[in-house]
Amino acid sequence: MRFSVRVNNDLSVAELSALTVAAEAAGFDQVWVSNDLLLRSAPVLAATLAARTSRISLGIGVMNPYSVHPSELAMMAATLQESSGGRFLLGIGAGAEEFLAWAGIARTAPLATTRAAVVTLRALLGHTDVDRSLLPAWAREHVAALKFPLGRPVPVYVGAMGPRMLTMAGQHADGALPLLYPPETYAAARASVLSGAAPAGRDVDLPACFWVSLSDDPALARAALAEKLAYYGASFAEPLLEQAGLRPADFTEAARLAHSGQAAAAHVDERMLSLGIAGDAGDVIARCRGLHDMGASHLSFGPPLGPDPVTAIGLLGERVLPALRALPQSADVPAAGTAPSRMAVPTEGGRR
């Protein structure tokens, strides 16, 4: 199994550096940092982390193609690939309409815009299996290439939740980052990605991305997750929340308090908390075993991680990851909802 950590860019440089160093020491394979508007700059954070680590892969999850042009995204990604010694991963997504509105940015045609950005970025970042007919006019008319050498292609992931965006990720991206709420929606996300990847026999990384809060004190773990859900819950897609019996409006009061810097956990109920995983190591292992049984072979632990994120990383490394590594390997041949998360689908002649 592979393991990654996802963190928000609300952490200070010192906090994020300590967390990433701890994650590398704990045996995690990747760290992803968000690029939510009006918080710290993820590209700057990634460059800082590259200088302070040596092995762990570093990703931004996610940038959007509205506030930064794909050509500049490619420049940034290629430079981070160079500065990290080939350890950089780029996540791209349409972003939350509510958050983009804070900067007066309209999120027009999210599926088409994100697809064009993914195809263009992969063309610029060293990938040769690109359908050039999908490139925008400016990239078709000019040579879609950077003007400095790239040591290795930069993997491009799509941050997606809905089935159409996930299918597109399967068709065109190197991986997908579906935020699963609750985590058990992994099977549906996997089916959508596979529906896009299977016809072309594409190999797509699909980590099971969930929010977790781990502590030896389960009450503190639940409170930390509640504050994170309060901040982001109102921006979750309505069709996906409906599957959990919730609506974005259920988070209105919690979001109002969270965005004004006030405590909001009291307005997050048990239904909302079920969207993530909160508790001690045993609670986390039990839910992760369920994901493993669905075929997930890449588990991605997202914020808040715990009331003390660095302590939580230590607990994950000491108690959770060893238990999950001891689980039997998932079968290579998928049944519905049970395929491994690295989805390599054979094509004619057995090629992948």
Results as ranks from 00 to 15, higher is better:
Ala198Gln: 13
Glu141Met: 12
Asp205Arg: 14
Phe236Ile: 11
Ala200Phe: 07
Gly201Ala: 05
Ala249His: 11
Ala244Leu: 11
Val158Glu: 00
His142Val: 12
Ser260Gln: 14
Ala254Lys: 01
Pro163Cys: 07
Ala188Ser: 11
Phe236Ser: 02
Leu179Ser: 06
Arg164Gly: 05
Ala224Tyr: 02
Leu179Glu: 03
Leu177Phe: 15
Glu242Ala: 15
Pro218Phe: 02
Pro218Thr: 09
Leu241Pro: 00
Ala191Ser: 12
Ala139Cys: 06
Ala223Asp: 15
Leu214Arg: 02
Leu206Lys: 02
Val143Asp: 12
Thr167Ser: 11
His259Glu: 09
Ala255Asn: 15
Asp216Asn: 13
Pro218His: 01
Pro248Gly: 02
Thr252Leu: 14
Arg190Lys: 15
Ala224Pro: 01
Ala139Arg: 03
Tyr232Thr: 06
Arg190Ala: 15
Arg247Asn: 08
Arg164Asp: 08
Val212Asp: 00
Ala230Glu: 04
Glu227Gly: 01
Ala198Tyr: 05
Asp205Gln: 13
Gly245Pro: 03
Ala249Ser: 15
Arg164Gln: 13
Met161Ile: 14
Ala200Leu: 14
Ala200Ser: 13
Ala234Ile: 14
Ala187Asn: 06
Leu229Ser: 00
Leu177Tyr: 14
Ala198Asn: 09
Arg202His: 09
Gln171Leu: 09
Val212Lys: 01
Asp174Tyr: 04
Glu253Met: 12
Leu135Met: 08
Ala137Phe: 15
Pro218Leu: 00
Ala137Trp: 15
Val158Arg: 04
Ala144Ser: 05
Ala237Met: 11
Val154Trp: 03
Tyr181His: 10
Leu177Ile: 13
Phe148Ser: 13
Arg202Asp: 04
Leu194Gln: 13
Ala139Met: 02
Gly245Lys: 07
Tyr181Asp: 09
Arg222Thr: 04
Ala254Glu: 01
Asp174Trp: 01
Asp203Ser: 13
Tyr186Ser: 01
Ala173Arg: 00
Tyr181Leu: 14
Pro155Met: 02
Pro163Thr: 03
Pro136Leu: 05
Tyr232Asp: 07
Met165Asn: 07
His259Asp: 05
Ala187Val: 13
Thr252Asp: 14
Gly261His: 06
Ala187Gly: 04
Tyr186His: 10
Gly162Leu: 13
Leu177Glu: 04
Gly245Gln: 10
Thr252Pro: 01
Ala234Gln: 13
Val156Pro: 02
Ala189Leu: 02
Phe236Thr: 07
Glu141Asp: 14
Pro182Leu: 10
Ala221Trp: 06
Ala208His: 00
Arg247Phe: 09
Leu220His: 08
Asp174Asn: 10
Met168Trp: 06
Ala219Ser: 12
Leu229Gln: 03
Gly261Thr: 04
Gly159Trp: 09
Ala249Thr: 13
Tyr186Ala: 07
Gly201Glu: 02
Leu225Trp: 02
Leu135Arg: 07
